[in-house]
């Protein structure tokens, strides 16, 4: 709302208030000053009250004039606000804006939720990387130990004849293998491996949650929904086959004979195709 518009509205409001006050507390005419003694104190009281009120009105009027931004509604704006057309149909007024906010609220909420999901994924990915690094740190340390063992063995070994590269490689691999297996049996390794596997799973599941949010927004079946469908199919198939087995006739013969392979194949083939 412009300053001019605010000023117009303020003037109009102040004028109307002054008119009301004058009507209510009109000043006595000069000839009426010698009224009854009993009425004088009351008249004085009213006059004081009137003056105080007028003073207040003047201050408020001044305040309104000084702060055009504080009150932004013009009479025209108020009129428009209460126009019936503004309350019905689709438009761009403040009510529609509020309605749109209600209607679109979930989308905004979801967007915000997606941010949180992405943040959680970043955090989980970071934890996974940390766990992978911890796992590799244990292995690196094991490699270091293996090399120390290999070096000390090589130094103390009485070499019979020239050492070949293959002989050295075999010895190194044997030491490395034993050292790594020793470490892989340790509690520290087992816990590091467990953590790595767990954080990788958690990270993957968080990715799935984000993918599923997208699926929901775009009307695509989610992984969870597909898993549920597959579970139902598996269970139904299980029940159906159990019923088929229960309804099947008992085995017809119970003797052991070895017929010719060719003849047997022909029979099995036809039955197989019938069942497939």
């Amino acid at each position: 709302m412009s300053d001019a518009a605010a000023s117009t509205w303020a003037d109009s409001w102040a004028t109307s208030q002054q008119a009301l006050m004058k009507l209510m507390f009109a000043a006595p005419a000069p000839g009426e000053s010698g009224a009854k003694d009993t009425e004088a104190p009351m008249q004085e009281q009213f006059a004081e009250l009137r003056d105080a009120w007028q003073e207040s009105i003047a201050k408020w009027t001044e305040l309104v004039k000084q702060g055009p931004q504080a009150v932004s509604m013009t009479p025209e704006a108020l009129r428009e606000l209460f126009t019936p057309e503004r309350w019905s149909g689709v438009g761009t007024g403040s009510f529609d804006a509020g309605l749109r906010q209600v209607l679109e609220g979930p989308k905004y909420a979801m967007l915000f939720d997606l941010d949180r999901k992405l943040m959680a994924l970043r955090q989980l990915a970071s934890e996974r990387d940390r766990d992978v690094a911890a796992f590799h740190a244990i292995l690196r340390k094991a490699w270091g130990s293996a090399f120390e063992r290999f070096s000390s063995n090589a130094a103390s070994r009485v070499v019979q004849g020239p050492a070949t590269w293959r002989g050295m490689a075999d010895r190194w691999l044997a030491v490395l293998n034993d050292t790594l297996i020793e470490v892989q049996r340790s509690d520290a390794f087992i816990e590091a491996q467990r953590k790595m596997l767990r954080s990788a799973s958690d990270c993957r599941l968080q990715e799935q949650e984000i993918a599923e949010a997208w699926c929901v927004a775009f009307h695509v079946p989610t992984r969870t929904e597909m898993d549920e469908v597959q579970r139902t199919v598996t269970e139904l198939r299980r029940q159906l086959r159990a019923l088929q087995r229960a309804a099947a006739p008992p085995p017809v013969a119970t003797h052991a004979t070895a017929s010719s392979p060719t003849k047997r194949r022909a029979t099995t083939k036809s039955r197989a195709s019938a069942r497939s």
Partner: peptide, 9 residues
């Protein structure tokens, strides 16, 4: 299936 094909129990 094999039992049926070979008439075995």
């Amino acid at each position: 299936f094999i039992c049926r094909q070979h008439r075995l129990s």
